[in-house]
Design a protein around this nucleic acid. Structure first.
Ligand SMILES: [Mg+2]
Ligand SMILES: [Mg+2]
Lengths: 260, 260
DNA sequence: AAGTGCATGTCGCTA
DNA sequence: TAGCGACGTGCACTT
């Protein structure tokens, strides 16, 4: 005895058959995958026109839609989640309109020839964890402040100012206040300017010295130049090594009791 | 007589059958679409772990790879184009390793159960045109400078400075120099700061007045505040209306000869 | 709803 | 290659 099929897969269906499968799939909150020849017209924050060609089209149950060419990481046309689908047969073929209320924008896909329609029931509750983020760099410095520099004591994190948010403020070994801006990628002039913006808010009192420290795995020449001009400092630190430190932390607490 | 099928579509294949189809598809530069239960491990600029669940996986002939959950616009894991694929059967099931030399990063997909494998021959040469971009706003101002303000005469575009690029420099009706920064979305403090950066380079001579003009469809309150502090100006202009102006331009030249 | 900043951002251009 | 800025950026988070 065979278990009931969780997929409906149509190969080179006619437009009417495709329409039925697509409508059913969307109504039942399935993931719908279409391969076929189409044009796409988008109108909203910008507008675009995609001439006839074969693409892969994906409709997800959360109302997101993607049109992928057979190249590139990015979809050529799309709608983020929360969109509404409307399918009909028109003079241009099988027409699917994807409308997003929030931004008042619409994407219209006109399919003239269909290679495949797949209606998939994807069940996905697996956890996703991302490591070596900027957040982890911050946590690593708060957990083991010596990686920034010996004697550093963090005071605040993500402090709201101006507006804007200062990643970390703390005192160094000599009790000098330090403003810390963290970047998980090579820091450039913009990053230095961001640090300056925060320094302008904190470093008000001429009599009290405040250090500006930019933490990043690397820095551009132009960024470095501006940094020196402003008298700030650069501390090299990679997101990967920060992530490693946190991994140790998570592994440590219990076993630490049994260590000599 | 039937035309030869341009797709290979397997429904609930075993791992061995799936592997063959996938390997063949990649070797023949096809677009390969897989639906199935998998885990994904990524390690590179960051790292991540995706626990077991059903996803849609896409491999494109240009070496880009996408892992999509049944929700969200963004892929949960991916590799941009230029990656290399390697497929094998291992103890974790059907394992596909996607390696990117440039960034020395890898994504490993381990498939344990497969709902579908589709090997698609997508031919796509259709032109894609995007309208209402910042570029079009710039072109519209250069074509019809009066939309910025009556009497404006653009002198340069995308002038390299500092480094950085000044969108437009020109003279106003009173022969005052004006630095123009264009934004296609609501301008914020960052945009004003960008304009200031350019002004700092151009407005060196105290005796000569230079105007700073921020062109955008809207501006944030904080942006407006900083703008006023610095004595710059805001000119409301939407990318859509700029796009309309260029459409007229493209339609005009020939017929203009025949008009009275 | 507005504002701000991160992202495995990606992508394209220029020096 | 490095640097910089646009993107229909998307997205989370805070006020
Ligand atoms: Mg930061
Ligand atoms: Mg601009």
């Amino acid at each position: 005895m065979e278990s009931p099929k969780r997929q409906i897969i149509l190969q080179t269906p006619n437009l009417e058959g495709a329409k039925k499968a697509i409508k059913t799939g969307i109504a039942r909150h399935r993931t719908v995958v279409i391969a076929g020849s189409c044009t796409v017209d988008y109108d909203g924050r910008a507008s675009s026109k995609l001439e006839e060609g074969e693409r892969l089209i994906i409709f997800k149950p959360d109302g997101s839609a993607l049109v992928h060419r057979p190249k590139d990481y990015s979809p050529v046309n799309w709608q983020p989640s929360g969109s509404i689908f409307h399918t009909r047969i028109g003079k241009d073929g099988l027409v699917i309109r994807v409308f997003r209320r929030k931004e008042r924008e619409s994407m219209v896909i006109s399919l003239t020839m269909i290679q495949m329609v797949a209606v998939l029931d994807l069940v996905d509750n697996g956890d996703f964890t991302l490591y070596a983020t900027e957040k982890e760099m911050q946590e690593a410095i708060l957990f083991k402040p010596d990686i920034l520099e010996p004697g550093f004591r963090p005071m605040t994190k993500e402090m709201a100012v101006d507006p804007g948010f200062i990643d970390i403020i703390g005192y160094d070994a000599d009790d000098i206040l330090a403003v810390v801006e963290i970047k998980r990628v090579k820091a450039n002039k913009k990053a230095v300017e961001q640090l300056k913006k925060y320094m302008d808010v904190i470093d008000l009192d001429d009599s009290r010295r405040v250090r500006g420290i930019l933490v990043a795995p690397d820095i551009t020449d132009n960024g470095s130049e501006l940094l020196n001009q402003l008298g700030y400092e650069y501390k090299p630190l990679t997101p990967q090594e920060c992530s490693e430190i946190l991994k140790q932390k998570r592994g440590t607490p219990l076993t630490a009791f049994f260590e000599p």
